[in-house]
Amino acid sequence: MNNNQQQQQPNASQTNAKKVRKQNAAASQNQSQQTEFASETDAQEVRKQNQQSEQKKTQNQNQQQQ
C-alpha cells in the first residue's frame, strides 16, 4: 500500500464526529417510528387472527388424516 491509500483509510483517530451524530439522529428517528408502529398494533385483533389461523391449521391436519 502506498502512503495515499494509508491516509484515506479511516482509523479511530479519524472518526468523523459530525457524520456519527447524523447517523445517530437517523437511527433514533427510525427507532421512534418503529415504536409508534408497535403502539398502533391492536393486540386483541392479532390474538384473534392467530386463533383463527390455528383453527384452520388444525382443520387442515384433520382433513389430511382422513
Rank of each mutant, 00 (worst) to 15 (best):
N3Q: 09
Q34E: 09
A38K: 11
S13M: 07
N62E: 13
Q6P: 01
Q8V: 02
E54P: 00
Q33H: 08
A26F: 05
Q63P: 00
E45C: 08
Q59E: 13
Q55C: 02
V20E: 06
E36T: 12
Q33M: 13
Q44M: 06
Q5A: 09
N30Y: 08
R47Y: 10
M1A: 07
D42Q: 09
T41S: 10
Q51T: 14
Q65E: 09
R21H: 03
A26C: 09
M1W: 00
R47W: 09
S32H: 13
A17P: 01
V20T: 03
S13Q: 10
Q66P: 02
S28M: 04
Q55M: 08
T15D: 08
Q64R: 10
Q33P: 00
Q64P: 00
Q6C: 02
T15Y: 01
Q55D: 15
K18N: 10
N60W: 02
N24T: 03
E54H: 03
R21A: 12
Q34A: 15
Q63I: 08
Q9C: 05
E45D: 14
N3H: 11
Q9I: 02
K22C: 03
E40D: 07
Q52G: 14
N11H: 10
Q23S: 14
S32Q: 15
Q33W: 04
N24E: 11
K57I: 05
S13F: 06
S53D: 13
Q65M: 08
K19Y: 06
V20P: 00
Q6W: 04
A17W: 01
N30Q: 13
D42A: 07
Q49R: 11
N30M: 11
N16I: 01
Q6R: 14
S28V: 06
T15I: 15
T15A: 12
A25I: 08
Q55L: 11
A27M: 05
S53W: 01
R21L: 07
Q31M: 10
Q59L: 14
K18R: 14
Q59N: 12
N11Y: 05
E40S: 15
A25H: 06
T58M: 08
N30D: 03
Q66I: 01
E54F: 00
Q44L: 07
F37Y: 13
N62C: 04
M1I: 04
Q31P: 00
N24S: 00
Q14L: 02
K18T: 08
Q63V: 12
A17V: 06
Q34P: 00
E45L: 13
M1Q: 04
S13H: 06
N16C: 01
N16Y: 01
Q31W: 04
M1P: 03
Q55R: 12
N30T: 13
E54Y: 03
Q64H: 02
A27C: 02
R21F: 02
E45P: 00
A17M: 09
N3S: 06
Q34V: 11
Q49L: 06
N50S: 07
S53Q: 12
N30L: 12
D42K: 12
P10V: 02
T41D: 05
N24A: 14
N16G: 01
Q44Y: 11
N3G: 07
S32W: 09
E36S: 15
Q55N: 10
S53F: 06
N11R: 12
Q66D: 11
